[in-house]
């Protein structure tokens, strides 16, 4: 049964990652791309979780926490960057 679940979730996560990558490529603004890359990071974390659950190990748990830290720092940094740049172009 676990192999069936692994196949089903692999197909679902592949479709989800494809949708997020399409939104990264097509996104009209930078913030849409940031949001879509955050979703892509969440999908990668979901893949790590499913690997741990199906194979019954905990090797990726620290990697999962590090992944959420990277997503947090990345989206906060880019959001600050967008706000600052737009304000400067408004003032000039």
């Amino acid at each position: 049964m676990m192999q069936t679940v692994l196949a089903v979730t692999a197909v679902i996560l592949t479709l989800a990652a494809a949708g997020a990558i399409i939104r990264i490529a097509r996104g009209p603004s930078l913030l849409d791309r940031v949001l879509a890359s955050d979703v892509l990071l969440a999908i990668l974390g979901a893949a790590l979780c499913i690997d741990m659950a199906v194979n019954r190990h905990l090797n990726n748990l620290m990697l999962l926490v590090a992944l959420s830290v990277v997503g947090f720092i990345g989206s906060v940094t880019v959001a600050r960057f967008v706000a600052d740049r737009r304000e400067q172009t408004h003032e000039s």
């Binding site: 399409i22 913030l31 499913i50």
Partner: peptide
């Protein structure tokens, strides 16, 4: 197994929402 499939469907729902919703806040 149900938890895993539903958790993966959440990712698919996010991708569908990213593709179909019109603006940043709804995405």
């Amino acid at each position: 197994a149900v938890f895993m499939v539903v958790g993966a469907l959440m990712s698919l729902a996010a991708a569908v929402g990213l593709l179909r919703f019109p603006d940043l806040l709804s995405r």
